[in-house]
Amino acid sequence: IRAFTKGGYADMRRVHTWNRGFTKNPAYARYEALASEIHRAIMFIEAAGADFDGLKVVDLYSAHEALLLEYEAALTRIDSRSGQLYNTSGHFLWIGERTRQLDGAHIELLREVRNPVGVKIGPTVTPEEVIGIIDKLNPQGEEGRLTFITRMGADKIRDVLPSIASAVARDGRPVVWITDPMHGNTIETATGVKTRDFDTIMNEVEGFFEVLYENAMVPAGLHIELTGDDVTEVLGGSENLDELRLNERYETRVDPRLNHQQSLEIAFRVAELLRRSENLDE
């Protein structure tokens, strides 16, 4: 991954190359205009003499859930230069929905390290709990220190998130907002196959954007499980994967992933949401 991101493949001028595997998709025509618009803008910037060095590569950071306390504790070290604690198992670490108890060991461990940290919040979270989490993990309101990762389910996010976002806004300490639209939308088929539905995933993403925009907050990212392979693990998308096709290339041992076609489709759909927000600002 580092070789790709540092070797020139991440160059913004290669936007059409990134989409090459998507061109045969029935949905591609819908997004070709957007891809061409990005390409023309990049070419204009280059012709104007702008410095493209910063757009040729991207930085790579690693992240994972800080679940196994023994593992995370063993890799928590003192920086000899600053004397501060850092967890060296990853750049960004998060606490899961099931282990975010305010008096629990997972919050206690991560409150001591200097890494940026996240907490997943599900449909049962309360405004009082999120303020308690801020008190524990970012009491001084340090910019970029704390991220909330919503995973509420498409049928609940529009009902639960507004009161949470309002409480954080009133508190005033900064929070980075990410959505995880996959873990709250896991289903099983009639034959017991664990899967997710593309439209349901996208519905939660849209709800996340809607609520944050209504509260003048910025959607900062998505936590998506995906692969560049042509797996058949998530229903729907423009390929219209149905339950019968799940068995063609269902390869995961843990969680169903978007394949590369579905991944590109969700990227373009999010680009449309961002464009919609620009129109609202105007």
Rank of each mutant, 00 (worst) to 15 (best):
F148W: 10
E143V: 09
N19G: 08
T227S: 01
K56W: 07
G90Q: 07
N19Y: 09
G221R: 08
Y31R: 11
G96Q: 13
I45G: 06
S263E: 06
A35I: 12
E243S: 12
Y28A: 04
N115F: 09
R77H: 14
K120W: 08
A154F: 12
L109T: 01
V15P: 10
K136R: 05
A48T: 11
L68W: 10
G122T: 00
T189E: 04
G207R: 05
D159A: 14
Q101M: 00
L258F: 13
N185C: 05
D229P: 00
L69I: 14
I38S: 11
R158A: 14
V211A: 03
I164S: 04
P181C: 08
I201M: 07
D155V: 11
G192R: 02
R253D: 14
R111L: 00
V175Q: 06
D103R: 02
S62W: 10
N247P: 00
L55S: 07
Y9T: 10
R13G: 13
V125N: 02
L222Y: 05
G21F: 07
E278V: 15
F92M: 13
I107W: 00
E243Q: 12
A154T: 07
D59C: 02
F92P: 01
P181Y: 00
F268G: 07
D53R: 11
G221E: 09
D159K: 10
E233V: 05
R20I: 09
D53W: 07
R151C: 01
V125M: 08
E239F: 01
G153S: 08
E225P: 08
Y71Q: 13
G237H: 03
I42P: 04
P219R: 05
G49Q: 05
D103P: 00
W177Q: 07
N19V: 07
F198E: 03
R158C: 09
S238M: 10
E108Y: 05
L264H: 08
Q101R: 08
A271L: 13
G192L: 06
A220V: 09
P174A: 11
L67D: 03
A105R: 09
V211G: 01
E239C: 02
G184T: 00
D242Y: 10
I133V: 08
A41L: 15
I178V: 15
N279K: 15
K136E: 06
L75D: 08
T126M: 03
E243G: 09
E143T: 11
T189P: 04
P127T: 01
N203E: 15
A3E: 15
G49L: 06
P256I: 12
N215V: 01
E204A: 00
S80M: 08
R151A: 03
I121Q: 07
K120H: 12
T252D: 05
G21I: 02
R14V: 01
I157S: 06
G236V: 01
R100Q: 03
K6Y: 13
I134Q: 03
I38C: 12
R170E: 04
D59M: 04
E243C: 06
L235F: 05
H39C: 10
E278Q: 14
E46M: 05
S89E: 10
P256D: 09
A73I: 11
V270Q: 13
R13H: 12
L212K: 01
V254H: 14
V175R: 03
L246E: 01
A267H: 09
A169L: 11
N25D: 14
E233D: 06
R98I: 01
R145W: 11
A167E: 05
